[in-house]
Amino acid sequence: MIDSLRKHVSPGWVLVAPFLMLVVVLYLGPILNILWLSLTDPEPGLQNYQKLYTNDTLLRIIWTTFRICLITTIISVAFGYSIAYAMVHAHKKRQKLMLTLLLVSFWISILVRTFSWLMLLGHNGLLNNALETLNIISEPVAFVRNELGVLIGMVHYMVPYAVLPLLVNMQTLDTRVMSASRNLGATGSQTFFRIYLPLTKPGIVAACLLVFILSLGFYVTPAILGGGKVLMVAEYISVQLLVTLKWGTAAMLAALMLFGVLALLYIMSKFMKLSTVFGGSTS
């Protein structure tokens, strides 16, 4: 039996197996504990999940989260598509510069970005002061402590994530197809809408799902730019854990987000390999 096992299992797995088991225990353990809490706290049953149908506040928070994430996704992918298109068709030197700037954006903390937007868009921020100086407005415009501020901060953070899958998808396209379309008499707009855009649909779907998934877990940006007036699921989970101590409700929402993300990842895998979203090989 041992000889048969050696034929099917590489010796390298003997070295990797302990570390793999450790990762599985440390990763799956907390997830299983969350699922258990959602079914047992404060008492065994499905009462936490029944709140999805009976608690108006909870339903409103889930709807707010979904709406903001959807708007963020649409705007981010629109900007991301334009940036990716420009990068693919730019000169090699400019393409490298644009890619460098894109990667640099990942190194800036979300907390730093959020406070920067707060200083820029606040009542006494740079934008309002400039508009008042130019006599364009007579009193400060409320750019923050509302959904507008949250959307601005989230879109700014999410655009680079939208660019990645779109850029990978566009780089794999056969440019000869577009050249053939133009040689056959199609205009630039006809080539784009009838040939180029349909070929980039997998990248668009992957970008939409990636941005939407990441947006679901936003906490810092809504908390700071929303000023407590725009409550999303991640912040509500924090309130349930730290303020009201309703761990069962928090665990239920966390489980709901987990299953939602897994479902979206499964859908994404149908359109594009998940590795390519982060720049992996497409083969």
Rank of each mutant, 00 (worst) to 15 (best):
I213L: 05
E43G: 12
F79M: 07
M252I: 07
L120R: 00
L46P: 09
P222V: 00
S269H: 08
T64E: 11
L241K: 02
G153I: 01
Y196T: 06
L184M: 15
G185K: 04
N129F: 03
A130Q: 09
G125F: 01
L216S: 02
L120Y: 06
T187S: 15
I204V: 15
V155C: 02
I68N: 02
K93D: 12
G228H: 01
E139D: 14
S215F: 04
Y157F: 12
R60M: 15
R94K: 13
V233E: 05
D174R: 05
T172P: 11
V24I: 14
R176F: 05
G279Q: 06
P18M: 02
V23E: 10
L121Y: 00
G280Y: 05
T175R: 14
Y53K: 12
V233M: 12
G149M: 03
G217E: 00
T57P: 11
P11R: 01
M21R: 09
V239Y: 13
F192H: 01
T64Y: 02
V23K: 09
I71Q: 08
G226I: 01
S181Y: 04
I204F: 10
V9K: 07
L5S: 04
K270T: 10
P140T: 07
V205F: 09
L245Y: 14
R176C: 14
T133D: 09
Y219Q: 00
I237M: 05
C208K: 01
M232C: 05
P42R: 04
Y236A: 05
V25R: 02
K51H: 13
F212D: 01
D41M: 08
Y85I: 04
L173Y: 09
V150K: 00
F278T: 13
Y53F: 15
R194C: 08
V88L: 03
W247L: 12
A84S: 07
V205L: 09
A180H: 06
R6I: 11
L101I: 11
L20T: 13
L167S: 04
K92R: 11
G149T: 07
W107E: 07
N55Y: 04
G227W: 03
T200M: 01
L264Y: 00
V168D: 00
A207H: 02
H8C: 15
C208P: 02
Q240H: 14
G122F: 00
V14W: 14
S181K: 06
S238I: 10
T175V: 15
Y27E: 11
V163K: 01
R194L: 12
L262E: 06
